[in-house]
Nucleic acid binder design. Structure first.
Lengths: 193, 193
DNA sequence: AGTGTTTGCCAACAACTGTTGGCAACGGGC
DNA sequence: GCCCGTTGCCAACAGTTGTTGGCAAACACT
């Protein structure tokens, strides 16, 4: 949404914009959409609440900007077909241990229709597209992607949102070992009768 | 929480209490904790908002009453060991297609710490207890239960909350067929090295 | 220097939130 | 009949929310 064309020199307010975005992601991730107030976000960013409105228009606009997210899925065609599940779990775990945007999106998606829509878009577009790259029956692609999403999001939900003790205490590598075969079967397994 | 002892005749207000609880579950399930306002719940139940306070003390008290939930897990010792996964998925799907309490709890758990705590309790207590019934290594029981919870809650999250199209469109029976082997492995599979 | 734009803060708004106290109507027990 | 607890509604409170308009300082450019 930055209206910069070509070699527009950076605006002086870009730092403020970035600070707001960073604070917004933190708050949305920690509190969800409705409990994360503009005032609290502005306080974290050490600016006035009205600046948030000027730069992002509304709370929804701020969230839309803060929840911009790319799964950065690797090219699955260059992965040995038998290790697809393993690669995917490992990627997802790494992806959101290091970036709270997806946690923010996950929390907000439970109560905010716009966030749910965004989540649907991310998984329907990016994940389904990645699954589609290694051929197989196109009619099944969406379903396979959906099943993968269910396990991946369930993992995130129990580990980062609800914080179920056994899911929090287990190391990423052990989680990968347990969950990889599941994704592998959802991706390449033969469908039930 | 009903203070009735022995043969206390039913109070005249029991109908109102029940109406409030029913409306509360609906609203919490549809909107989450913070967007479900007491005023809206009272309107649905066709009574005054102040009645909600009188009968349930506070919004938190109302939620605590509305989110009372029993998984009603069947006795797993009488299930053929090879069909544990199948029985579990089928049970869970049936359990919350017919009762919106768990959807309410799921939505609220994303933003409300109390709801998350309640969710942790339900799965840590009821599910772990059920998993523990068929022996095996006690040290692994919690982890197995956690993994099962991750797939079960991921299924519910994608189907009822985010409403991912492929997960909504797939029939319960087909979901059972896909997901049962996953739970089966989490429950009885050999742990990774 | 002088002008116009950008960046920021302050104060306030209207709406909505959970929550409270008082008061009328109704009920059963004596 | 009378009386007391229950059930219900109304009006209002205090606080918080997203959002807005105006005004001062800082800046960029001639």
């Amino acid at each position: 949404m930055t209206p910069s064309a070509q070699t527009t020199q950076p605006r002086r307010s870009d730092a403020t914009r970035a600070a707001i975005l960073r604070a917004a992601r933190e708050r949305f991730a920690a509190d969800g959409y409705e409990r994360a107030t503009i005032r609290a976000i502005a306080a974290d960013a050490q600016i006035d609440p009205s600046m948030v409105m000027r730069y992002y228009g509304s709370k929804e606009g701020l969230f839309a900007a803060a929840a911009e997210f790319d799964l950065r899925l690797p090219d699955l065609t260059s992965v040995p077909p038998g290790r697809l599940g393993e690669v995917l779990v490992r990627h997802f775990l790494a992806r959101w241990e290091g970036d709270e945007t997806l946690v923010a999106l996950l929390r907000a998606a439970s109560t905010n229709p716009g966030a749910a829509e965004r989540m649907r878009g991310i998984f329907a577009d990016q994940l389904t597209a990645a699954v589609a790259t290694f051929g197989s029956d196109p009619a099944l692609t969406a379903r396979r992607a959906g099943l993968v999403a269910s396990q991946i999001l369930g993992l995130a939900f129990t580990r980062y949102i609800v914080r179920l003790p056994p899911m929090v205490d287990t190391s990423p590598e052990e989680l990968v070992a347990w969950v990889a075969p599941t994704l592998q079967r959802y991706l390449t397994g033969t469908p039930p009768s």
